[in-house]
Each structure stands twice: as structure tokens, then as C-alpha cells.
Nucleic acid binder design. Structure first.
Lengths: 361, 361
DNA sequence: TTGTAAGCGTTATCAC
DNA sequence: GTGATAACGCTTACAA
């Protein structure tokens, strides 16, 4: 109650304790050497005044904030919230705070976030880049000496550590499994925007490589690889992208299942899309896996609870964040080794939503 | 590439531009008045030197950080990630950054988080308190003058704004609906720890009021209210709490359905618990809603995709965060009105998981 | 419009 | 072990 007018500072405490500011600071900051008796006096004075340290002032002189900046697209998305959890756990363990910015995939927002965070003098930056195109701000961060780690998406131009998943291999594995069960008409729900859809339809199908920063694009490339290996034509009809929301996947699924020769299996490139596909199938009275098999990506918390339990490609989501944060902390500690690029493995988790293709569909 | 040795400061820029530090600062900070020509010179110099402002120094003198501290239990939990999204949107709109700490319901962690954040001189604090018992740190924050808003859980001792949901009314509404459909054996999956379970079993059932900070406790109280109104005995057998994880709810459901006289309806007090109940019912071959009706809390993204679609008590999750943040910003702007306590309304969303009780179960 | 100089609350460098 | 005192990089009177 005594402490109204601004909070007490070290000089205030020192005065009350009858010591110099330097001594008081040493006692309160636990550095240098202070006798037990003066320490006691100082602590008593601090308590009486309700002294609270000012980290800003400390950071000014030490040059370190014990704070990490995290820039990702949408914390509401379960994938990112789990990534963040991984980051946050490792960071706090090491005594760092985390400041978070959502970009909603806007490169503009990302740029400004990076600027603000570096101005706040975060000790390091974890970024899940929105766009492979505009990366000048990341390059500039990286060679201004602020430690930077790329999360879930790698950009070649940027000289920084990265932690990603082998999305292409994952997409391939899922598709190969379906092909091995006799499926030849395999639908793909991607969610990515028009540009990419066209790239898919284009002869040679090379466009997708360009956009590979997008994780779903990597998975889509794996899908194409597997089809080609299996000698199955890649048809643009079977590749639909209406957007990344659940409702979008509902529409996409409706479109797929309304084709004259509908797919016998569907691959949904993320967990929300799988949810939409499931919903659409239920609403249309299509049985899974009897009529159509379904494979999703990312092992969400509901995959075991739905009917049928969903077969998915699981990725170590929390580990992506944790590993990225560990790499960042190493850089902050001063490591100068060349950039490392960790590629985490995915795992095909087979549950009940996939069955061999039926004789006549 | 020119900028290696620490980053350039205002004096550096000023020197290069041939003006005083004050002028350079004014030009770069967009305050005071600067002639167009000098501004141009300064900006050129800043660009050449790769100058980046130091927010720490600015904050030291202005006394404001444009940063909000957010303390909640677990960002991985979809509920909190949506709350955070609401907070984050409003905060960024107003030009504030957000620093996040997970407490995992540990009061100890919460206390230390609050300390660290105030030492970092955040302009305000949003806290979802872990424990109604130890609140000294919150009281001290609140009367040290740092704006504070309580999120999703209110504590009477703490003089601060709060935004919550009327959990008791929500629990009552869900239970009343089940009772109206003829259900008299209604199971409750709470997740809360032993202490509360005992309180429930105790005569008079007063214990739960004490722990009402917990949202599930509020809902449980509403359940009890509704049962009493309907003249149904509250039996401890029908109230199970194995923990808050999905697996816990699976076990809880198994226990409920193994009773000699199993419930004909189950109320699961949060979305993860509902997920577990659903999974257990599927695994045990119990049909929903034919054999047992199920009601959940919190409208997760999967509720429409499961079979049957889940009837839930929906709460305006994102709005909880957004409203809380708005209140906080008002305080930061200097509002001194007495604490306000917003109670947001919930909504019973009826889907397919509830049916009238069958003649003979 | 521009410049001078006094802080903001710490830590760090020296002496003693 | 303790005490002056100079940074840290910026904003802000106050003067010019």
C-alpha cells in the first residue's frame, strides 16, 4: 500500500538500507559479492518499498532480453498451437519468455512483426514464413546477426537453421498405401489457392515445385510422385482446392463425389480438411471406408474418436517447435556452426478409414 | 552488410546526417517537427547505416512498452488457443504485442510468470488464474497499479475486471434438457481432482461452491441444481472424475457404463472429455444416441463431423479473449471506473447426440 | 525548425 | 566488500 508513486528503484532501496546503489544492486541482482548482513538489510528495504526490478533497464545494459519472438500464421490452428507449445516449453525451461505474433499468412504482417520484434530486441526469432516470395526481411534479420530459425517451412535464400517435416515423402507414403490397396481413382483435397491448382493441371506439373514452401504443396507433390510410380494418370479432376477451412473441404468433397467416376479414396492434406471430408461424406450418406477410403494428415485429438477412426499421416508437431527452439537457443549461446536443416519423420498411422478398393464401385 | 558492430544508434545516424541527435530522433520517431529536407537526410543516413530503433530505450523513457502479458494454463488446449486468438487480434489492432506464458494450472508458475511480466513492464496483464486459493500475487499486481483483467475465471478477492461465462447456468441448461427428455440417470464426467469429487458426495454438497473458480465446477453445480429441481437424487456414482485428458474421459465413461444401472445420458464438462466419452462409447459398442445420449461443452471444430454430430453447450470463446483485451486496453488508456465483470452467454446447440430416454434401458 | 542537456533504472568498471 | 561513476539508447523540456 505504501508504494503508489511509480515503483521504487534501486537508489530508493539503497537509501533506505543505508548502502550505495551499487551494493543494493548487487544484493538484489545476485551478482558480485555482498556480505550476508548487508544483503539482509537490502532485502528488507526492498520488501518494505515493494521494489520490483525493471527488466528494461537491465536489458539496456546487458544487451539481452531473455525473450524469443515467435511469428506464425494462426495460433488458433491446432497445428500451430502445438508447435508453440513445444517452443514455449523449451524456452521457459531455459528461462526465456515468448512473444507471439499471428500473421494469417500475410507476408506484410510478417514483415512488420519481424521489425517490431527485432526493435524490441528479442534474443532470437522463430518464424514460420508465410510466403517464399518476399523474404528480404528474413535475409536482413539473419545477416544483421539476430539468431533466426525457420519453423515448418524452409526457404533456401535465407541462411538460417530450419526444422521441417518431409512432406513430400509423407504425401507419397499415404498415396502409395492407397495404390497398393488397389485404388486408382484417388482424390486430393489440397486447400491451396488457384495458382497452384493450375500448376497441377499444367503439362509436366512442374509448377508445384516452385511453391514448395507451402507444406501442402510438398504433400501434393508426393501424391503426384506416387501416382506416377504406380502408373496412374494424374487427373486435374481429382485435385480440388476450395480453401483451407473445413467448409471448403466439405464443398471439395462434394465436388469429388459428384464426378461421373468418383474417386474410391480421398487424401485430405491437413487435419481440418479431413474433418470437412468426413463431414461431407456423412452428410451425403457415403460410407467410409466401405464406399470411399479417407486418409488425413496430422494426428488431431479427434482422429480416434470419429467413426471410423481416421487413418492419418502423423507428424511430430510439438517436436517441430521444441527442436526449433533448441536450435535457436544454441545460436543465442553463440554457436556459429553452419546452418542445420532438421527434417523430422512422419508416420503413417493406420486406423479404420481405409479399405481395399471394392470390385465394382 | 556494412552494419556489423552492434547496430547503429541515433547519434550515429545524426552524425552521418549532420544534425543533432534530437533532430534525428524526431525525424525517425515521427514526433516533434522536422523540416522535409532534414527528414530526408536523416532517413537516408538511417537507411545507409541499417538503423533499427531500440524499443527498450524508448520504453525506459516513455514508461510504456506496448506489450501485454497473457498468462493461461495451456495454449495447446483449443479453448485457450481460441481465447488467445481473440486477445491477440484486439491487441494487434491497437498496436500491442503479446507475451505468453503457460502455467499448466500451476499456481507457482503463475506467480513467477506474473512477476517476470511485471518486471518486463508490460502495460497490462490478462490472467486466467490457476487457483482460487493463492491470489496474493494477483492482488499485489492489481494494487500496484498495473492493469489486470481476469479471463474465464473470476476471483472475488482480486479487484480487477473479469470476463467469464455463466458456467452454472450452462450446466443447468444442458442437464435440464436431458431431464426434460425423460433422462433420470445422468452421468457427469468432470475431470476435476479428488477433492471436488468428495465435495460432491458429501452431504449438502456445499464443497463445490468453494472451488467455483474452476469452470467445470461451475458447470457441475449447474448439473446439481437441475437435478435437484427435477427431483432427481444426485448420486456420487454418476459423477466421475478421472482427469482432464481424453484418455481419462475414456476410463470415466467405461466406469459409468459398467455400473449396474448405467446412465442413459452423459454430460461431459469440456470438449476433450466429450471426445473421450465418444471414443469409449464407440469402442464399447454403445450406440449414441440410441443407447446413451451425450452432451458436451464448447463447440470444437470436430463436433459437426463426428457420428452422431454432437450436441454441445457452445461458449463464445474468442469473444472471451477479445472482450477481456478490450477491457484491459481501456484500463491502459487510463479508465478508472470500478471493476466490471462481464458474463457472456452460452448457447445450447442441439445436434444428433441426444434422444429421449428409451422405455426400457 | 533545430540544438543542448538532463534524465529513465539498471549493470559494469574502477578504485578504495 | 563497498562506493563512485560512466555507460546503455532513447525522449523531452528548454533554449536558441
Amino acid at each position: 500500500m505504501e508504494e503508489r508513486k511509480g515503483s521504487a528503484t534501486i537508489p530508493d532501496v539503497a537509501r533506505l538500507a543505508g548502502v550505495s546503489t551499487a551494493t543494493a544492486a548487487r544484493a538484489l541482482g545476485n551478482y558480485g559479492s555482498v556480505s550476508a548482513s548487508t544483503r539482509a538489510k537490502v532485502e528488507a528495504a526492498a520488501a518494505e518499498l515493494g521494489y520490483r526490478a525493471n527488466s528494461l533497464a537491465r536489458s539496456m545494459v546487458t544487451g539481452t532480453t531473455n525473450t524469443l519472438g515467435v511469428v506464425l500464421s494462426d495460433i488458433e490452428n491446432p497445428f500451430f498451437s502445438r508447435v508453440l507449445r513445444g517452443i514455449s516449453d523449451v524456452a521457459h525451461e531455459a528461462g526465456f519468455e515468448v512473444v507471439l505474433v499471428n500473421t494469417d499468412e500475410s507476408s506484410e504482417t510478417e514483415r512488420s512483426a519481424v521489425r517490431v520484434l527485432t526493435e524490441k530486441r528479442v534474443d532470437g526469432l522463430l518464424v514460420c514464413p508465410a510466403d517464399a516470395g518476399s523474404t528480404a526481411h528474413l535475409v536482413s534479420v539473419s545477416d544483421s546477426g539476430v539468431p533466426l530459425v525457420l519453423v515448418d517451412r524452409r526457404i533456401k535464400d535465407v541462411r538460417a537453421d530450419s526444422v521441417v517435416v518431409d512432406n513430400r515423402a509423407a504425401g507419397r507414403a499415404a498415396t502409395e498405401m492407397l495404390a497398393a490397396l488397389g485404388h486408382r481413382r484417388i482424390g486430393l483435397i489440397t486447400g491451396m489457392d488457384g495458382e497452384l491448382g493450375e500448376a497441377f493441371a499444367a503439362p509436366g506439373l512442374k509448377g508445384i515445385e516452385r511453391a514448395m514452401i507451402n507444406t501442402t504443396a510438398g504433400r501434393a507433390a508426393g501424391y503426384r510422385d506416387a501416382l506416377q510410380d504406380a502408373g496412374i494418370d494424374v487427373s486435374a479432376d481429382y485435385v480440388v482446392s476450395e480453401g483451407f477451412r473445413r467448409e471448403d473441404a466439405v464443398r471439395a468433397t462434394q465436388r469429388l463425389l459428384s464426378l461421373r467416376r468418383p474417386p474410391t479414396a480421398i487424401l485430405a492434406l491437413d487435419s481440418l480438411l479431413a474433418l470437412g471430408a468426413l463431414q461431407a461424406m456423412r452428410e451425403m450418406g457415403v460410407r467410409c471406408p466401405d464406399d470411399v477410403s479417407l486418409v488425413g494428415f496430422d494426428d488431431a485429438d479427434w482422429t480416434e474418436a470419429v467413426t471410423p477412426p481416421l487413418t492419418v499421416v502423423a507428424q511430430p508437431v510439438q517436436r517441430i517447435g521444441a527442436e526449433a527452439c533448441r536450435l535457436l537457443l544454441e545460436r543465442i549461446e553463440g554457436s556459429t556452426r553452419p546452418p542445420v536443416h532438421r527434417v523430422l519423420r512422419t508416420e503413417l498411422v493406420e486406423r479404420g478409414s481405409v479399405a481395399p478398393v471394392r470390385r465394382r464401385s
